[in-house]
Design a binder for these strands. Structure first.
Lengths: 247, 247
DNA sequence: CGAATACTTGAAGGATCTCAAGCCGAGTGG
DNA sequence: CCACTCGGCTTGAGATCCTTCAAGTATTCG
């Protein structure tokens, strides 16, 4: 296990500039000249197979990781339980929580085959002082991560189970759409149990609610193949309108 | 309302260097020369009275704010509900979530008289590129904020009510202790309702649990005067040991 | 002192969890 | 090709935790 395949090589030229992740990743909004400088420091590309760890809580922190393709989950363990903190996908940056004290404090696991760009933090760090546009983008990324987690806090603190699940589905769809992927029909990469661990619910509860959404005719779901039928009703539940109110 | 008292003036000399918040605030770990440069850009000091807003969700973002003294709460509204996301105190930085899109997305309200240092972000931003030690500290601060919220995510997603409250109390005590304040005996600044809104519980539930902790002889609490008697038992519950197991 | 607000406690109900059993689909070996 | 197995998924029934609603007490503030 823990195979570490470095991609065809660090073929400096066609990387960030051709990645297409632009607006999501660190490269977002950079003028070409700055983009070039970022490309120069990006380390090897790594391929992870389903189930492999990108890093584990406690590992020394040396690099940030950008997801180029594929799907992962991040987990936090404590007191015998485990909280899924996110399902990173294309263009998202992992490891931001490790900057503070030089150790990762969550696990990152591939849910599927992933291509990951490694960004050595010491190099990035030097570059930030030189490239204002990159520093801006880096700060926006950190700030956005804080926002994202505040939204999750709200979800776990205030929403009932059906609202949590609706928010999850609506959010997932939005993330696919924002990347220009087909978003009506989605292949879920995570198990019901992982969804539950993300939403603070049991697997059984997730199942029952999915069944409910299915019976209401809002989605179809066979195995992990999800199709959105009535996005409006789902969005209404996500906004807090009670299920019964929609018939 | 919204009185904005600028302190005696921006008496450049004795600010960050004499603040005592050093290790918590942005000034933490800076060599004296860099500290001086930070001091130069820190804007006025502002005094907030209990109930006043430092900023509200939707306000344009121009400055970060450092708490010099006093206690606040930060709130996030959505879908008719409200989630307390934190209770900032001395040395903590507010507004980090607003960097991404130039607007605050939570409210910050004083729970008590507060002294706040305003740090204009554009100035800070320029300084970061010049002062590596400051940039480091800034990134650590952002990263730590992410960590803090991940801990809250865990709490809301996995802990039972009694564990949540125990974690809250233990954490509060630790924050006082870390600042060298007396931590056995604490004057709470927040209502039971606010504690509930932070922990994802109702006020009634918080009351009942506090009564339980009191009856178990772990704390005393009259009004908002809290005293820790048996920190070990409380810590055990915070770690997930069930209440009954402790007698 | 009176009013308003914060807090406390009880009882009943509901949402979610736990435990348990059965189902389905994918992969395997005969 | 079929039977088998295994993990993931589904559904049911009962228990539990927490909420809701309600009443009452303490505290603060004018």
């Amino acid at each position: 296990m823990e195979v570490e395949t470095v991609a065809p090589a660090n073929c400096a030229g066609p990387m960030c500039s051709q990645c297409g992740m632009g607006s999501f990743c660190l490269a977002g909004g950079l003028p070409p000249c700055d983009m070039q400088r970022l490309e120069n420091i990006v380390g090897g590309r790594r391929t992870l197979m389903r189930g492999e760890y990108l890093f584990r809580a406690g590992d020394a922190f040396a690099s940030l990781f950008a997801v180029r393709s594929g799907y992962l989950k991040t987990l936090r363990h404590a007191h015998g339980a485990c909280q899924v903190t996110g399902f990173p996908m294309d263009g998202e940056l992992l490891g931001l929580d490790a900057i503070a004290d030089g150790r990762h404090d969550c696990d990152a696991v591939a849910l599927d085959t992933c291509e990951i760009c490694e960004i050595p933090f010491d190099r990035l760090h030097h570059l930030l002082a030189d490239v204002p546009s990159l520093m801006d983008q880096f700060h926006r990324t950190l700030s956005r991560e804080i926002q994202r987690q505040q939204a999750s806090l709200f979800l776990l603190g205030n929403a009932r189970a059906e609202q949590r699940l609706a928010l999850f589905l609506v959010g997932l769809r939005a993330r696919y759409a924002a990347r220009g992927k087909p978003s009506i029909n989605i292949q879920l990469r995570m198990s019901r149990e992982e969804i539950g661990a993300y939403l603070g619910l049991t697997m059984e509860c997730v199942c029952r609610l999915l069944a409910r959404f299915r019976k209401a005719g809002w989605i179809t779901l066979t195995g992990r193949r999800l199709t959105f039928i009535d996005g409006a009703s789902l969005a209404a539940v996500a906004e807090g309108v009670c299920y019964e109110a929609l018939g």
